[in-house]
């Protein structure tokens, strides 16, 4: 049997933790629960993550890097701004569908339990890989003349608030259709809201 690397073990913990937090909730899930799911001792677990709070922060960074990496691939494509919006929406919904525990964690743990993240995750530093990529998207789109130049947060709030809201409804089983059904209209709405005004 091949010996798993430390990196692979770490990823295993992350995956298991996200699953459990998603199924049972952040506070109810314990370190022994996670360790058991991964098949390691609690002592060994602490070799990877010093505490539950440290794990919470690392999970956030992990998700941000994952989403950031996908966003970067879209940013680097030679397609129109509107096509990029379409791809961003599509990517976000795909992650919500295929790895629901990731977006769930963001919405239900990070946004809803600010006290967990305390001073370690001040401002947006723990979601920086993702936010930086959104900044790059906005910077280039305005620079090209495609989107209306406005304050970053007005635009960011519109885009991410919208997507987060949809995923939240999806998570609550309120949406009658699959997420993909809504992609086209959502793309139109976002583009029409943010596009340059003449």
């Amino acid at each position: 049997m091949a010996r798993t690397t430390k990196e692979e073990r770490k990823k295993g913990i992350i995956s298991a933790a996200l699953q459990l937090f998603s199924e049972r909730g952040f506070y109810i899930t314990t370190i022994p629960d996670i360790a058991q799911k991964v098949g390691m001792s609690v002592g060994n677990f602490y070799n990877y993550f010093g505490s539950k709070d440290v794990l919470a922060k690392e999970l956030l960074l992990y998700i941000s890097e994952y989403l950031g990496k996908n966003l970067r691939e879209i940013n680097e494509k030679e397609i129109t701004t509107k096509e990029k919006i379409e791809e961003i929406v599509s990517m976000y919904f795909r992650v919500a569908k295929e790895k629901p525990e990731m977006i769930e964690y963001f919405l239900r743990v990070y946004l809803s339990n600010r006290e967990v993240f305390g001073s370690e995750c001040k401002g947006m530093i723990c979601v920086s890989p993702f936010v930086t990529e959104m900044m790059i998207f906005f910077d280039e789109s305005v620079s090209r003349g495609d989107l209306y130049n406005q304050d970053f947060f007005s635009a960011f709030g519109l885009f991410m608030g919208y997507l987060g809201g949809m995923v939240f409804l999806f998570g609550e089983d309120i949406l009658p259709e699959p997420l993909s059904f809504y992609e086209k209209d959502i793309t139109e709405n976002i583009y029409n809201a943010l596009k340059s005004r003449s």
Binding site: I125, S128, T132, E133, D139, N149, F152
Partner: peptide
């Protein structure tokens, strides 16, 4: 600026790198 992001960042500094570091400092 484009959506509050400076058009020109310090010479030869990749924009992503600059935004990440600036974002951190601004916090």
């Amino acid at each position: 600026t484009n959506m509050s992001i400076p058009q020109d960042v310090p010479l030869d500094i990749p924009k992503r790198a600059y935004l990440s570091v600036a974002g951190m400092a601004k916090t």
